[in-house]
C-alpha cells in the first residue's frame, strides 16, 4: 500500500506501524510516531494497523529554543 511517511510517499508491504518502522530501518527508543495527526504510543505500534493513504509522522529529538 501507499503511505505518506514524513512527507514522502512510500510503497510498502508493512501492515502495522511497527513493521513499517522496521522496513524503513527506523530504530531507537527516542522516536515518536503519529498516524493521521494522532499520537500512536510506542507500546501500540505492533498492533496498530495501517491503511492505504495513511499519513505517518516519525519524529525524534532535535535542537530547539
Amino acid at each position: 500500500m501507499k503511505l505518506m511517511v514524513n512527507g514522502k510517499v512510500h510503497e510498502v508491504a508493512a501492515t502495522t506501524l511497527a513493521e513499517l518502522l522496521a522496513a524503513l530501518d527506523y530504530e531507537g527508543d527516542w522516536l515518536a510516531t503519529a498516524v493521521n495527526n494522532d499520537l500512536v504510543h510506542k507500546a501500540s505500534r505492533a498492533e496498530f494497523q495501517l491503511n492505504d493513504g495513511d499519513r505517518i509522522e516519525i519524529l525524534s529529538p532535535m535542537q530547539g529554543g
Binding site: 514524513n6 530501518d25 531507537g28 527516542w30 509522522e57 532535535m62 530547539g64 529554543g65
Partner: peptide
C-alpha cells in the same frame, strides 16, 4: 534546556546523537 521534535530522516540516528548529548 529546551528541545524540540522534528522529522527523523536518518532512521533514528540523527535524533540519537543529539539526545545522547543532551
Amino acid at each position: 534546556v529546551t528541545v524540540s521534535l522534528r522529522r527523523e530522516m536518518a532512521g533514528g540516528r540523527a535524533g540519537e546523537k543529539f539526545w545522547s548529548l543532551i
